[in-house]
Nucleic acid binder design. Structure first.
Lengths: 198, 198, 198, 198
DNA sequence: AGGTAACCGAGACGGTACGTCGTGTCTTTAT
DNA sequence: ATAAAGACACGACGTACCGTCTCGGTTACCT
């Protein structure tokens, strides 16, 4: 969440932080996250799986949720880089497709668990917004902006709202437990283009 | 969730279930729900507040979440009855406004807590969908259908999708912790009418 | 313990106590007593086995221990009737043998359970003393008295003490969990005769 | 019972067991034992009195009875050291007097509670036999043996039986709830010496 | 014949103790 | 200083049993 960045070692005295432990913890966290629902991941199990003491966990992270979230972030190298072909509408379609594919897959499962947990944990929620939700919305808004600029979407479009209209159904499905089926992304995109295109 | 229905007393032998206890429990549940976040509501506190034994709680409900959800349902007499003025578009606007007002207020806070908890509790989620989410979407779809029939929205409109586009941003805001401000409902409605009206 | 006597019916108005239920309860109590240790006999199990409601138990007995004790008494028709052959020393030997055989068998197991429970339950202890312990000691003392009178035991013998010396080892074995083996009774009797005979 | 021995600290890694907690628990156990009957001593009360968590109790002892028994043992420094004046008969008299005084006093009350509880708890019974009953009988037998060797008791005396004849009445009184009055010890000793002396 | 009263079964109730589990902290020795 | 090991205080959990109570119904006596 905060303390886990393995940046810059301008070391003072004493034994340095074990990079091996840090990696083992993050790996263990992600493994457990795939095996069982978040509330069933205990600090003890996490420590044992990583071959690490509980104290080490709490020395570097404020809570077990923070650890697991970092494990999730760490395993998440493939953020949705907004594709950029030149045709904004194609980019949009691809972007939404990828987003919905992710939300409908195992990663979405984890994401939903964090969103749910975040409702009772401010820190967690903020980290999640900062690292995932905000950038993703910004990406979407960027593409929408380019489409408007290219004259493919109506000028004066409420871009921020439009981004929320895109992500909204995914959240709705995720949190109500409905599946995010194959064609949903295109239905959303088509609908919006039909409505807001020109 | 299931057992709480105070319907039909075709009694067999034995002491009948205490209606007073049942009501006290539901009331206590709703009170506590207003006072603190769901995970901080304990079974013992619930029982004590209701002047009831813990055993009585667990005799009738499978978990404290179920109790609290029932308390929430019980206190929820004012479902959003879809207003029906005659003008579908006005009805739609009113409907969305009311929905967003609810989602943005204290009741939405509780609702969000149940949605979040439901992610880790199938029973809870199903009850929530059955009692709230599904009926609300049906209401929305009904209004949209009438608007289409009245020729105020484009024929062939993907009504189910459109309902999700309406509810989606509310869920998005709720689960990311963003406020659902005053004008959001109208922005959504206006946007959709602008896009899908004719 | 007290209320269970099925004596004299000088009845007033109202439905009379069900003799069938009373018997069923006592039988069930004794059956359960043979099946499991006393603390594992619950009021509910007792009632269920007897096909009776818990209320009926508590209407007639003050506690479940009292019920089970009555079941034990009820099944105990063969009190050790002090044999009386004419030779007091032979009678004594037979009496002690029978007493120790009982204490070493399954009945002694139950008896010990009541003695143990009685330590934490005054009522229970008193009933046990009144119905079993006192009469048994009286029997023993009677035989000892006859032996003294017949000049077979030393005159001036402390008869009450002697009875306790006879019963003492049995209690000692019972409460320490040591077995009461075949020959113990005779060892006790022989020892005492050797010491106190003349 | 087993785990409480504060012996040998050949320590490995990890936080060592808190000696302070251990002592506080044993002290609390003994205090409570003096205040109320054993079955009314609850695990929670024990923990609270000792300023310790319930988990710590159950980490080291299998049951509350075991804790209390250890508390009892711990407070019991004054085992009846068999007095040894030179005259075995005097020693015997003193030994029995002390034994009966103990059994008749408050310590005997506790002892009886453990004996009673032990009847339903094998572990408890074994610990009690190993720590108290067996050594005490061995002491008695030792004195009896010396008396026989000194020619003060009849040769060939059944020493083990004789020890049980000595302890038997004390158990009898204890478990039937009769008082162990002042002169009982001497009556027993005198009776046995009269019978088995020479 | 009808009334009254004590009984019966079923089973829900308040209360209390149980023993377990998870959290985050603290205390050791070893690196 | 940091690590593993693991003991610790705290507090919630859900279960079990106790003895009481509240129902609808059932006998019996007593007018």
């Amino acid at each position: 969440m905060t303390t886990n960045d393995s940046t810059d070692p301008p070391r003072g005295p004493g034994r340095p932080r074990s990079e091996a432990s840090r990696q083992a913890i993050l790996t263990a966290a992600f493994e457990l996250l795939q095996e069982r629902p978040l509330p069933e991941i205990t600090g003890a199990a996490l420590a044992q799986r990583a071959g690490v003491s509980k104290a080490t966990l709490y020395r570097w992270w404020p809570s077990k949720e923070a650890v697991v979230l970092d494990g999730y972030f760490d395993a998440l190298k493939h953020r949705i880089a907004p594709s950029c072909t030149g045709d904004p509408l194609t980019d949009l379609r691809t972007h939404v497709r990828e987003a919905y594919r992710m939300m409908g897959g195992p990663e979405g499962k984890m994401f939903a668990a964090f969103v749910a947990s975040g409702h009772f944990d401010e820190k967690l929620r903020e980290a999640l917004n900062k690292e995932l939700n905000s950038p993703r919305c910004k990406d979407t808004e960027g593409i929408l902006g380019r489409a408007v600029a290219a004259g493919q979407l109506r000028p004066g479009l409420d871009i921020q709202l439009c981004a929320e209209l895109i992500w909204g159904p995914a959240f709705f499905r995720l949190m109500t437990g409905s599946p995010i089926e194959e064609g949903l992304a295109d239905r959303v995109t088509d609908g919006l283009i039909a409505g807001f295109g020109q």
